[in-house]
């Protein structure tokens, strides 16, 4: 069994460290533990939250205490997780799910596309081709409901955030901030450079799985026309 590090996240949570580097191997371990906890939550567990290199496990110390004798909740949870992790190493990894996200680039949906192109020394068309020609890995959902932290953007597209953030960015806006790209799942203020917009909802509070994406997914952006955007938006 591999060695994992445990550390307290306050008195009702625990961080399981699955690796030092943000890479595919660590992500696979994070995804495997998350998938196990999703299917087999242990008694007293409240929820789990996958991170880049960690899985946070939240628990109710009172419930844990009531079902374990002579053990402090933190130690009881470490023990339970060690058992789970020892079983986990033999599990087969499942294939990544691929999610296509249609994006209408430029125009009023992507007011900063030209600026990104100028900064990169490329044409707007080249920016669109590079951005939509890359496969992105979803490392973690966080920051805002349904917001994916994506890995894998072509470094040529890296561009500093806007000097002053916009007060309100429309839902579905696709942006670049530094070396990261992402989609704004809810209307919010933000400083990213906006290059396009998707008619697809990344955050759907009424659904069982409110986040369209989850850690471990592969994302591809597909360029669409203004007409297609409107058709998809109406059909939604």
């Amino acid at each position: 069994m591999e060695h994992y590090e445990f550390s307290p996240l306050g008195d009702s949570g625990m961080i399981v460290n699955m690796g030092e580097e943000i890479d595919r191997k660590t992500l696979e371990k994070v995804t495997a533990l998350s998938a196990y906890l999703e299917e087999h939550p242990f008694d007293g567990m409240t929820e789990y939250v996958p991170g880049f290199t960690t899985v946070a496990v939240f628990y109710d110390p009172i419930k844990i205490y009531n079902q374990s004798i002579n053990e402090f909740p933190y130690e009881a949870v470490v023990k339970t997780l060690k058992q789970i992790l020892s079983k986990l190493s033999t599990r087969k990894q499942s294939e990544s799910r691929v999610v296509d996200i249609p994006v209408c680039y430029g125009g009023k949906f992507g007011p900063d596309l030209k600026e990104v192109a100028n900064h990169a020394g490329l044409t707007p068309e080249e920016v669109v081709r590079i951005h939509s020609g890359t496969e992105y890995m979803v490392y973690m959902i966080g920051f805002a409901p349904g917001f994916p932290y994506l890995g894998g953007m072509d470094e040529r597209l890296a561009v500093p955030r806007r000097p002053s953030p916009r007060v309100s960015i429309p839902v579905g806006s696709v942006g670049i901030g530094g070396k990261q790209t992402g989609v704004y799942p809810i209307e919010s203020p933000g400083g990213w450079q906006l290059i396009g917009k998707t008619p697809i909802k990344l955050f759907r509070p009424e659904e069982d799985q409110p986040s369209l994406l989850r850690a471990g997914d592969v994302v591809r952006f597909q360029p669409i026309s203004r007409e297609e955007f409107e058709r998809l938006e109406v059909g939604d």
């Binding site: 996240l9 306050g10 949570g13 939250v49 880049f52 960690t54 946070a56 939240f58 973690m140 920051f143």
Partner: peptide
């Protein structure tokens, strides 16, 4: 620092 989950009281 790599982003990870936080808790109430962090």
């Amino acid at each position: 620092q790599i982003s990870e989950a936080v808790s109430a009281g962090t």
